[in-house]
Structures are given as structure tokens and as C-alpha cells.
């Protein structure tokens, strides 16, 4: 009977993403509730060493598609690999992390295999063999609940940090099974030529998920460096209020607000910004807003999700260090 649970393990430059490790907790839970064995698939080029990391998380079968064309993500090749793996292990459920890759490949896999799909789940539970999932929708203003049927293939991508990663098991159960994927048969005409890394110095505020933004009270262009450090750790970009831009502390293209750029990132950290109406209008749509300001009555706090009444120069470096520590622990 094909009721396996296939975990797609995403790696980046030879490191498994924490979000992928967390999927094993869910996989184990589903195996307990609905039966079936937990299997894993790693795709990449020259990723031999990763297999043991993966094996320690307890999959019964561990497939590795290790070939040069997998060096960069390619929707069709990766889709093919996942579909082949699903067929190999007899998967009924495919789990992915909601990353750029997970969002991109999940729908193709589900479409190709005629399965059901749920993207960016924040809660998954069994329900007489079917799956009840919850996922945020309408820009986080509502939560939708869906049911994926007990029969047929189900593809789920799970929001990172929804589950904690399981403790690695010292005695791995699975042998590595190489998975041969017939990539030539796909005849994909899309090839990734290169990946250009971007750092917080060069990221555009309108294109990132996390923004660290500073007001005029940051003081000077040099003082903004602590904001850049935090943005770098969080893989975000730095924004600025109009007053800071007017004072020449930041270039005009970083200005956020009614008269600058209107942004709606996942996380907006406002450092030393009081929150004039022009500014609020430009960032109100952010999902989570953190306000760091010494003035407890600053209007920004009325828009914020979390607030810290403190000097930004004290908190921001600590925040960067804490995030760094945590993210390092993840990987």
C-alpha cells in the first residue's frame, strides 16, 4: 500500500535548511496517526555528506538525487526528482518547507501527480485518514482551514518554525539509496546560470521579507551600520524615514512612507521612528511590526505588534547577536 510520507529535504550550499529538518517532526506525527513510513529525499550536486545528517532524523528510506544538473534549482528537474521519489517509495504525502523553492516546486509536483495541495500550512492534523490543515490567507487577516482527502496524493508545504526539529537519532535506520532521475527526458529549456548573492547593503526594501528601518534619531550614516548588521543577519534590507533621508543619513531609494516606497514585509523593525502619518501609510501593511523607541507615547507603538521602549543603540546590536546565535544554532 502506498501511504509513505516523503520529506523533501532542501539544502543550500551543502547545508540542510532548518525548516526541512522540522518537517520530520510532522512526518513522524503523521506516520503515527495514519501509518506509513517516513522517507526522505535530498536533491543536489555533490551532496554526499549530507545524507548522514538526514539519516540521523530517522527516515526509513533515504533517497539522494545527486547529479550536476541539480546544482541549481530547476523547477522541472526538481519536480521530476520528487515525482520519481514519490513513485519509488509509494508516497501518499509529500512534505516541503515553505521556502522560495518549496513554494515553487510544490504546485508542479501536485499538478503532475494529480494530487491535492496546501501551501504554507501552520497547522496539520489527521482527521479519519484525511488531513485538516490551517493556513494564513488574505495577508494574514484570516486563517483558512482545508481538508486534503484520505485518498490520493497530498502535497503540503509547511511554514518554517511551525514544528520544532526532532532530536537526531544516533543509530540511523536507513541506507542511502541513489535516485537516478532521467533529466534529459524533461528537455527543460530553463537553466540557472548563476546565483548572485545580495547583502543588506544592496537589497531593495521593496523586494525583501524583512526590513530594518531607522529614523532620524539614528544620527548619522555611520550609525546606520548597526541596522545594516541586523538586516544582514536576518537576510533583510534597511529602510529609513523621510527625516533620516532628508538629513542625508540614507539614500532616497531607502525611504519608506507615503512619499517614498510603500512596503509590506513579513517583519518590519522600526528603530527610532516616531511614526508620522506619512511613514505609517508606507508600512502599515507589514505582517509583524516591531517598534524600538525611547518615547513610550510615539505613534509608532499604536501600529506595532511588539514594542520595546529603549534606546535603539542598546537593543539593536544585542538583537543582531541574539538572532545570529539562534540562526547559527539552527544550522
Amino acid at each position: 500500500m502506498s501511504n509513505s510520507i516523503l520529506v523533501f529535504v532542501e539544502q543550500r550550499e551543502g547545508t540542510i535548511l532548518p525548516a526541512s529538518l522540522q518537517l520530520f517532526t510532522l512526518a513522524q506525527q503523521l506516520a503515527t496517526e495514519q501509518g506509513g513510513q517516513v522517507c526522505a529525499l535530498v536533491v543536489g550536486a555533490r551532496i554526499g555528506e549530507l545524507a548522514s545528517d538526514c539519516a540521523a532524523l530517522g527516515p526509513k528510506r533515504l533517497l539522494v538525487a545527486d547529479a550536476p544538473p541539480f546544482r541549481y534549482y530547476s523547477p522541472r528537474a526538481y519536480t521530476q526528482a520528487i515525482c520519481d521519489a514519490a513513485a519509488t517509495v509509494g508516497a501518499q504525502t509529500v512534505l516541503l518547507a515553505t521556502t522560495a523553492l518549496g513554494r515553487d516546486v510544490g504546485p508542479r509536483v501536485a499538478a503532475k501527480l494529480g494530487g491535492a495541495l496546501a501551501t504554507d500550512c501552520t497547522s496539520v492534523s489527521s482527521h479519519n485518514g484525511s488531513l485538516r490543515i490551517q493556513r494564513p490567507s488574505y495577508c494574514g487577516k484570516c486563517i483558512a482551514e482545508l481538508e486534503l482527502p484520505a485518498d490520493g496524493l497530498r502535497v503540503l508545504s509547511v511554514r518554517p518554525n511551525t514544528f520544532a526539529a526532532p532530536e537526531p537519532d544516533a543509530a540511523p535506520a536507513a541506507e542511502v539509496e541513489p535516485l537516478a532521475v532521467d533529466i534529459d527526458a524533461i528537455g527543460s529549456r530553463a537553466t540557472t546560470l548563476e546565483v548572485v548573492k545580495s547583502d543588506s547593503m544592496h537589497k531593495d526594501v521593496s523586494e525583501v521579507d524583512i526590513i530594518v528601518s531607522g529614523g532620524r534619531s539614528v544620527g548619522s550614516e555611520e550609525d546606520f551600520s548597526i541596522l545594516y548588521d541586523l538586516a544582514e543577519v536576518l537576510d533583510g534590507a534597511v529602510g529609513a524615514s523621510r527625516a533620516a533621508v532628508d538629513a542625508g543619513q540614507q539614500p532616497r531609494d531607502r525611504q519608506i512612507g507615503l512619499t517614498g516606497k510603500v512596503v509590506s514585509p513579513r517583519l518590519y523593525i522600526a528603530c527610532g521612528i516616531d511614526g508620522a502619518i506619512q511613514h505609517l501609510a508606507g508600512m502599515r501593511g507589514s505582517r509583524v511590526i516591531v517598534a524600538i523607541n525611547t518615547k513610550a507615547d510615539a505613534p509608532i507603538f499604536s501600529a506595532a505588534t511588539y514594542g520595546c521602549v529603549v534606546d535603539l543603540f542598546e537593543l539593536v546590536p544585542l538583537l543582531a547577536a541574539e538572532c545570529k546565535r539562534l540562526l547559527a544554532a539552527d544550522s
Binding site: 507615503l258 512619499t259 510603500v262 502619518i277 505609517l280 501609510a281 508606507g282 502599515r284
Partner: peptide, 20 residues
């Protein structure tokens, strides 16, 4: 460019500030 945002806000939200 910011005026486009303002127009849409006035049209949709009834105010120029993109406020709900």
C-alpha cells in the same frame, strides 16, 4: 509614483493615507 498609490487609496479606502 506616490500619487498612484494615493489615487488608489482614495478610490478604494476613501482616504489618501492607505489607512484601513
Amino acid at each position: 509614483a506616490p500619487l498612484q498609490e494615493m489615487f488608489q487609496s482614495v478610490e478604494m479606502a476613501g482616504n489618501p493615507y492607505s489607512a484601513p
